[in-house]
C-alpha cells in the first residue's frame, strides 16, 4: 500500500453512553461505503477489537461513570492523534451526569435495595465490576479533547461533516442546523 492510498485508522468506543451516537454514526448510510475507502477501523464495537492500537482518529461516545471508562479513555488518548468527543454525554456528561446531585450510595440503595418489589436485594460487589465514580464527568475533564460533536445524538450529517472536514485537512465546522445540543 503506497502513501497515497494509506487509510486513516479510526477507533471508536462507547463509555457511559447508550450507543445512540454509534447508531447515528451508522445513519450516514451509504456514505459508509465512501468512508471505508478512506479509513479502516481499529478498536470499535463495529470490529470487536478489544484494545486500541496507534490510530489517527479516536471517537469517544459517552462520559465517565466508572473506573474502567477512565482507563479506556486514557488508552484512546495515548493511541489517537485526534480525539473526538461524540454526543452530549461525552461533551457534558449528559443523562448519566444527572445523578451527580445525588449521593452514589443513595442511588445504589434505591436501585438495588430499597426500590419497591425488591426482596433481599444487595448492591453488586463483584471484583470484576468496575467501581462507579462518585460523579459522572465529561471526557474533557480528564484528557485533552481535540474536537467536539454535540447532540443527543449528533445527526449523521453532523458526524459526516466533521469526519469529512478532518479527512480533507480542514478545521471542522458545524453551522446552523448541524450544531445541536438536543
Amino acid at each position: 500500500m503506497n502513501a497515497e492510498t494509506k487509510k486513516l485508522r479510526v477507533a471508536t468506543t462507547s463509555l457511559a453512553g447508550c450507543f445512540g451516537c454509534h447508531i447515528s454514526f451508522l445513519d450516514i448510510d451509504e456514505r459508509l461505503l465512501d468512508l471505508v475507502q478512506l479509513v479502516e477501523f481499529d478498536r470499535s464495537p463495529l470490529t470487536d477489537i478489544k484494545t486500541c492500537g496507534p490510530c489517527d482518529i479516536g471517537i469517544i461516545e459517552g462520559g465517565l461513570c466508572n473506573a474502567e471508562n477512565v482507563h479506556v479513555l486514557r488508552e484512546f488518548r495515548a493511541n489517537c492523534k485526534i480525539l473526538i468527543a461524540l454526543g452530549a454525554c461525552a461533551v457534558n456528561g449528559g443523562l448519566p451526569a444527572q445523578r451527580n446531585h445525588l449521593s452514589l450510595s443513595a442511588i445504589l440503595e434505591e436501585v438495588y435495595h430499597a426500590q419497591h418489589g425488591l426482596v433481599d436485594g444487595f448492591i453488586p460487589n463483584d471484583p470484576e465490576l468496575p467501581l462507579p465514580l462518585d460523579k459522572v464527568h465529561p471526557i474533557h475533564e480528564v484528557v485533552k479533547v481535540d474536537y467536539f460533536i454535540p447532540g443527543c445524538p449528533p445527526s449523521a450529517d453532523a458526524i459526516w461533516k466533521v469526519l469529512t472536514d478532518l479527512l480533507a485537512g480542514k478545521e471542522p465546522e458545524l453551522g446552523h442546523g448541524l450544531i445541536h445540543y438536543d
Binding site: 434505591e110 430499597a114 433481599d120 460487589n125
Partner: peptide, 8 residues
C-alpha cells in the same frame, strides 16, 4: 431515596 433495612 429511602434506605432499606438490610443494606450492604
Amino acid at each position: 431515596c429511602p434506605v432499606g433495612p438490610r443494606s450492604n
